[in-house]
Design a protein around this nucleic acid. Structure first.
Lengths: 144, 144
DNA sequence: ATGCAATTGCAAATCGTTTGCAAGAAGGAC
DNA sequence: GTCCTTCTTGCAAACGATTTGCAATTGCAT
C-alpha cells in the first residue's frame, strides 16, 4: 500500500550520456528524490542523504539540485517564503495545492486552466515559457 | 495621459484608525507605493524614498513593508528567484504575467480560472486562502 | 508643552544558498 | 588493473535578502 510514485526513468544512464559523472553523492541524492513521495527542501534531502552516507555535505546537495534542475531532471518550487523544495521530474505536468497548516503539498492538474492561461498570454502578446499556479488552502472541516 | 493607477484609499486615515502611527518615513514610503505603476522591490523603494528624504533606512522600508502587508495595505510578490516585490493593495484582485526578458509585470484577471481553482480545491477537500498564478513569458515576435 | 510608548537608523545577526580552494574520486586510455 | 586528467567533493568563508537588538528619536494623546 506504499505510495509508489516511482517511474524512475533511469537517470543514471541519461546523465552519463549527457557527460555528467555519476558519483556516490549524486547517486544517493537522486535515489532520495526518486523515492520521495513529498517535496523536500535542500536541508531535508541533506538529512536523508546523511542517513545513507554520513560524509555527504549540504553544498553537494545544493550543487546537485542546481545541476539536475539544469538537466531537467528535477523541478524546483519556491513556495511562500520558505526555502526551495524539490521534486523529481519526469511525471506529468501538474500544479500544487499547499496545505498552509501542515505544509503538505497536493498535486493537481487542470487542462482547462492551462488552456485559459495560453489564451490570456496570447491575448497579451506573449508566449508562455512556464508558469506557476499554487493554491494555498486549509483542509475543509468535514461538517460533523 | 499618465498611467493613473491611483485610487488611493487614504491609507493614512485607515492606518491611524488601526492604531498605527503615521511617521514621516511611512508617509513617504506609502506615497511611493501609491504612485508606483510598477512592482518595485525593497531596494528600489528605498532608492525612491531616499530621493525624497535622505535619512530613511532600508530597515525601515522592510519594516514598513511587513507592517503594511500585515494590515492588508500592500501585496508582496515573490517572483522567480528575485527579491520580494510590492504593490499597493486596494485594486481588484489580479494575477501576473512576467516578461522574462525585461522583468516587466503585466496584470491580468480571469474569473474563469478563479472559478476553476475553487472547484479544484473543493474537490480536494480544501478552502483556498489565497493563490498565486504567475505566467512567465516572452513577447511574441510580431510576425513581420 | 510634556511624557511615554512606538519608531527609527545603524550595525550586527540571520537564513538560504553559493563559492574558492585543496584534497579526493570518476572513468577513459593503456 | 593502473595511470592520468578532469570533474567533484567537503569545508569554511562569502553572499544577497531580510531581520533584529539597541540606544536615540519621534508621534501624538494629554
Amino acid at each position: 500500500m506504499a505510495k509508489a510514485k516511482n517511474q524512475n526513468p533511469d537517470y543514471e544512464k541519461m546523465l552519463r550520456k549527457a557527460g555528467v559523472r555519476i558519483t556516490r553523492p549524486r547517486r544517493i541524492i537522486l535515489g532520495i528524490l526518486s523515492g520521495a513521495g513529498d517535496h523536500p527542501d535542500a536541508l531535508e534531502i541533506f538529512r536523508r542523504a546523511v542517513a545513507v552516507d554520513g560524509s555527504i555535505s549540504l553544498s553537494t546537495v545544493y550543487r546537485t539540485m542546481k545541476l539536475m534542475e539544469g538537466m531537467g531532471a528535477i523541478h524546483r518550487h519556491a513556495f511562500e517564503g520558505g526555502p526551495s523544495r524539490f521534486e523529481q521530474a519526469g511525471g506529468e505536468h501538474h500544479d500544487h495545492l499547499i496545505d498552509i497548516e501542515s505544509g503538505d503539498v497536493i498535486e493537481f492538474k487542470s487542462d482547462r486552466i492551462e488552456q485559459l492561461q495560453d489564451e490570456i498570454a496570447k491575448k497579451l502578446g506573449y508566449d508562455i515559457v512556464h508558469h506557476r499556479l499554487e493554491l494555498y488552502g486549509r483542509k475543509r472541516r468535514t461538517a460533523g
